[in-house]
Simulated scan of single mutants.
Amino acid sequence: MPDCTSGECGGLQLAKELDIADYIIAPDPSAARLTRAVEGVDQTGEISRINVVEERPLTIFLNAQEIVTAMTIGDYPEYLALGFLRNQGMLLPDDRINGVDYDDDLETVVVRTERQTSYEDKLKKKTRTSGCAVGTVFGDMMEGLEDVRLPVTPVRTSWLYALAATINRTPSLYLQAGAIHGTVLCHEDRPLVYMEDVGRHNAVDKIAGWMLQTGTGAEDKILYTTGRLTSEMVIKTAMMGIPVLASRSGFTAWGVEIAQQVGLTLIGRMRGQRFVCLAGDERLLRDVDPASVPVEERKHRRKSSEA
């Protein structure tokens, strides 16, 4: 293991100044319609005014068929629709997409494909998933996973520590208002696309939609999330072809079991110097001494307990 206590490896990465311009898409906590100021009374009886996250419905159509209505904060609706349909297996890898039309007044997105589609039978089997803004999975949750082959891409632990340090300091609705989840697509030690939503499944679907729209490959990417590592999160990550999923939160037993089955590296409870890997440890290259990693600031620990 190299000597990182002198700041010659991961230490240098962790010490880099935060630059929002490094992101392709970063959160904008000041964006209109994402939050609303609400006045209340605190524990001392004093008037307190805080920002709370907005929720609004978004109905997704695939061609002429209504698929689902999701509760969302309302940003990037086209990416959310594309990603949801792709992660549900309703958009196929070779589908030609003719258009993605969003109507703000009707709060709908219509995805149009060259292929004629009909998913009546699939829509009859519906599973409500865990977490905030409860998600929906249609058909067999494990459908499509039997063909998943994730690349054995090496991952340096110095990248993981650097990502956590950068993401936790990035201005976001998560830090400003809470009651929301963030998911970040990363390459090595650089966060690329940071999406937020009231449901972690929505944030992941937005990233999946962005990857589909831009033709971005998944084999060398890391997905970082503030939410729990549930079966749904593991399945979506595997379906996207991303080999590594990391979180500052904990695991569910089924999430771990599925990760082990599909060969996904699953890392949780990642806070400051600590993390736990419950699947896919063979990808990890431990190139930094955890003792050289700064202790996490208290405000990030406090927000984590609210998620």
Rank of each mutant, 00 (worst) to 15 (best):
R149D: 04
I258T: 04
A31F: 00
V256P: 05
Y174D: 10
Q116Y: 01
D287H: 05
T72H: 12
N168W: 13
T237L: 09
A218M: 09
D281T: 07
E8W: 09
P57T: 01
L82A: 03
W159F: 14
D281G: 04
E78D: 09
Q43K: 01
A179L: 02
I25Y: 15
T127G: 06
I267W: 04
E232T: 11
D75R: 03
F251H: 08
N63R: 03
I50M: 12
I180G: 01
L123V: 08
D42S: 04
A26Y: 14
I267R: 03
C277Y: 04
L223R: 00
A32R: 14
L62M: 06
V109N: 03
M270A: 15
R286Y: 11
A179T: 01
S6Q: 12
L223H: 05
D281C: 03
G268L: 09
E232C: 12
L91I: 13
S158P: 08
L278C: 09
T153Y: 15
K124A: 03
R228K: 09
V52G: 01
M240R: 02
V38P: 04
I180C: 04
K299R: 13
A165T: 10
D289Y: 04
K221F: 10
D281Q: 12
R115P: 08
A291D: 15
H300G: 01
Q260R: 15
R128K: 11
G40Y: 02
V111I: 11
A21K: 13
E107C: 04
A162S: 14
E188W: 04
G83V: 00
I222N: 10
G74I: 08
G209H: 06
L266T: 08
C277Q: 12
G215Y: 09
H181M: 06
K16W: 11
T183N: 09
Q273R: 15
G7R: 11
E107P: 01
E306L: 13
G40P: 02
V184H: 07
D281L: 14
R274W: 13
D281I: 06
L185M: 08
G7K: 12
T108G: 06
G139D: 06
H187R: 10
L91W: 00
P2R: 10
E146A: 05
A253I: 11
W254K: 12
P191I: 09
R298E: 15
R156I: 00
F138E: 00
V244E: 04
L12I: 13
F138A: 02
A253W: 03
R298A: 12
P243C: 14
I47E: 11
V198K: 01
G45R: 07
W210R: 06
R301D: 12
L192N: 05
V293L: 15
T225N: 07
Y76R: 07
R149M: 10
R115I: 02
L34H: 05
N202D: 08
L223K: 03
T5C: 13
M141H: 00
N87S: 11
V262P: 00
L175I: 12
C277G: 07
